Simulated scan of single mutants.
Amino acid sequence: MIFWIVVGIIAGWLAGKLIRGAGFGLLGDLVLGLLGGLVGGWIFGALGIPGPSGMIGAIVVATIGTVILVWISHVIREV
């Protein structure tokens, strides 16, 4: 459980840095990071790409998913 929280925080922070904007604060970044891990895992699975293993691999997959979620949230916020 702690592992996924740490991965979510790191992924949320990285996504906030990769996508223009100020991020969503610690709690928002954590939630987006955790959800991004699910989205990233689903995308990798749907494409038949085996996800990298270990903590670095989990952070990469979660960050990819989180970047997608942050981008979608920015698009929705602009409307």
Rank of each mutant, 00 (worst) to 15 (best):
V61M: 03
I68P: 02
G40A: 12
D29A: 09
I56T: 12
G21V: 08
G48V: 05
V7F: 02
K17F: 05
I56A: 15
A58Q: 08
D29C: 00
L38N: 07
G33Q: 11
V79N: 12
G21M: 06
K17W: 01
V67I: 15
A22P: 00
G65W: 01
V7T: 05
G33N: 11
G16F: 02
M55C: 05
A15M: 02
L18N: 14
G28P: 01
F3A: 07
V60N: 07
I59Q: 06
L27S: 13
R20D: 08
H74R: 15
I10P: 03
G12I: 05
G28V: 01
A11V: 03
M1L: 12
T66F: 04
I68N: 02
L38V: 14
L26D: 06
I72K: 13
V75C: 06
H74G: 10
A62W: 03
G23T: 03
V75P: 03
G57N: 14
G33E: 10
G45P: 04
I43G: 09
G48Y: 03
V39E: 07
L14D: 02
K17L: 09
V60C: 12
L38E: 07
V7G: 06
G36D: 14
I68W: 03
R20A: 12
L69Q: 05
L69N: 01
A11E: 09
F3H: 08
G23M: 05
V70L: 13
G8Y: 04
I19G: 01
L38R: 11
V79A: 13
G33D: 11
L27M: 12
I5L: 14
L34F: 10
T63D: 03
R20T: 03
A46P: 00
W42P: 07
F24W: 09
G45R: 15
H74T: 07
P52M: 15
W42M: 15
P52R: 00
W4T: 14
R77C: 02
I72C: 09
I56E: 03
G54Y: 00
F24I: 06
A46I: 10
I56F: 11
I64K: 05
G28A: 08
I9Y: 11
L35R: 01
A15Y: 01
V67G: 01
I2A: 11
G36P: 04
G21T: 06
I76W: 12
V79I: 11
V7S: 01
V31I: 05
G51D: 03
L30V: 04
L38T: 00
A46F: 12
A22N: 11
G12W: 11
V31A: 07
V79H: 14
K17M: 09
G48Q: 06
T66C: 04
V31N: 05
G41F: 08
V6R: 00
P50E: 11
I10V: 15
S73F: 02
I2H: 08
P50C: 00
T66R: 00
L38C: 10
G36S: 13
L18F: 10
